[in-house]
Design a protein around this nucleic acid. Sequence first.
DNA 1: TATTATTGATAGTAATACTATCATTTATCA
DNA 2: TGATAAATGATAGTATTACTATCAATAATA
Lengths: 236, 236
Amino acid sequence: MRNYYHFVIFVSIMDFQVTFKVNDKIYLRDPESTEVGREIVKNAIDLVYELGFEQFTFKKLAAEIGSTEATIYRYFENKHRLLLYILNWYWNYMEFLVDYTLTNIKDNKERLKLIVKLLTHELPESTGKFDYNKKNLNAIVIAESSKVYLVKEVSEINKDQVFKPYKDLCAKIATVISAYNPKYKYPKSLSTTLIEASHHQQYFSLNLPRLTDATPKNRAEFTGQFLEDLLFKALS
Amino acid sequence: MRNYYHFVIFVSIMDFQVTFKVNDKIYLRDPESTEVGREIVKNAIDLVYELGFEQFTFKKLAAEIGSTEATIYRYFENKHRLLLYILNWYWNYMEFLVDYTLTNIKDNKERLKLIVKLLTHELPESTGKFDYNKKNLNAIVIAESSKVYLVKEVSEINKDQVFKPYKDLCAKIATVISAYNPKYKYPKSLSTTLIEASHHQQYFSLNLPRLTDATPKNRAEFTGQFLEDLLFKALS
DNA sequence: TATTATTGATAGTAATACTATCATTTATCA
DNA sequence: TGATAAATGATAGTATTACTATCAATAATA
C-alpha cells in the first residue's frame, strides 16, 4: 500500500506547475524566459541522453530545434554550462521532492526510507507538453552528472555558487541523518555517498554488471535496497 | 606500530621491479616495449594531472616528450585509450598491492582494514627513475577514472575486456567481504562503493568541501575512517 | 652490411568550439 | 499604430582538436 501511496504523491505533483530559478551565473540569457530557450534545454536533455555528453554539440542541438549555433551560444557559454544548468534544475527539483515527500512524516526512519526511494527511483513523469523527459533526465543524472564537477576548473566555477543546489540537497539529507542518529560522525559524507552510489550502482548494473550484485532489470529496486541496508546499518 | 609496519611493506615493494601486462586490446603498439612508449605513458600521467583530461591533447604530450603526434598515435588510438591504459595499470597494481599486503594475514577484519587503507591512501612512491609519479597517478585516479567508463560506447569497449582489472579488483575485495560476513547480500556493490566513494570523498574534500565532513588536510585519513566505519557497520 | 622496423617531419582533412556581422523577424511600449 | 529595441537566423570565419597519410631519416636486427 505504501508504494501506491507514493505514486499518488507523485501524480499530485504533476498538477503543480513546479519551476525553479536556476542561478543566473550559469546562463548568459535565461532559457526559461523564451520559447527558444525552453526548447534548447528540453532538446538538450534528449540529445545528451541519445549521444552522450562527449558527442553532444551545439551544432547538433541547433539542427534538432531548427535553429543555429549562434542562438544557443547566446543562452549558454558552452555545453558544460548547459549540462550544469540541467543538473541545477535536477538538484533543485530533487530537493523540492524531498521537502514535499517528507511533509508531515515525523518518523526519522520513515523519512530516510523515503529519501532513499527518491534517490534511487525515476523522477515522476509529468503530462505537461513543455516538461522535460524525466526518463532521459534520470539517465543523464546517472551517466553524466559527475562530469560537471570532475573538471580542472572546478574551483573557479564553484565561486559562482553553481553547485549550491547539490550542496543544499546534501545538507538537507545530512540533517535527516543527524536527526535519526545525532552521534553519527559523517552525515554529509554519507549523504553524498548515497547520492553518488545510487548513480554508480545503477550505471554499473546497466553497463558493467559484474561490478554490482544487481541485474539490469531490477536496478532501481536493487539499488534502493542496497542503499537502505547500508544507510541503516551505518546509523545503527 | 601498525602504521610503521605498513610503511615497511611499502618500502620493500619498491625493491621489486613490479610490472604488469596490460590487455593488448588497449594499445596499438605496446608502450612498455620501447623507450618512447614508456615516455608517453610516464609523461601522460604528469600532463593529465596538470591539465585535466579534457585539456590534455596528444599534441601537447608530443611537445612534452620532444616527439610528434604521429608517434603517439602509433601507440594509442586516442587519448581515451591512453587513460584506459593508465587505469588498467593502476587497477593491476592495486590488486597486486592487495594480494601482497594481505599475505599471511589471517584475520578477516584485519584484511578488510588493510584494504580500506590501500584504497584511501596514496600509492607507495618508488625511487626508480622510470617509474610513474605515484602522487600524480593517485590524483588522476581520483579525478579522472570514472571518465573511462562513463562514455556512450562503454558496452562496445567493454567487449575487449578492458575493464577486467577493475572487475578483478572488485571481485577480490568482494571475496574478503564475503569471508568476513558470508551472509552479506551485496559484496560486489559494497566493494565498488568503497572504491568509488574513496575517490569522491577525497575529490570533494579537496574541491567541494561542503559535500563532505572532511577537511582537505586530513582527506586520506578521514576517508579511511569514514569508509572503515561504513564497511564494518554494513557487515555487522 | 642489408633489411626491416620505428620515428620525425610535414601536410592535410573534417569536426569542434567558438566569435563576429548583419539583415530579418518579433516583441515592447509611447 | 508605428517607432524602437531586442532576439533570431543566416552566413562567414578562426583556432584548435582529432585524427590520417606520406616519406625521408634513423635505429635495431639478422
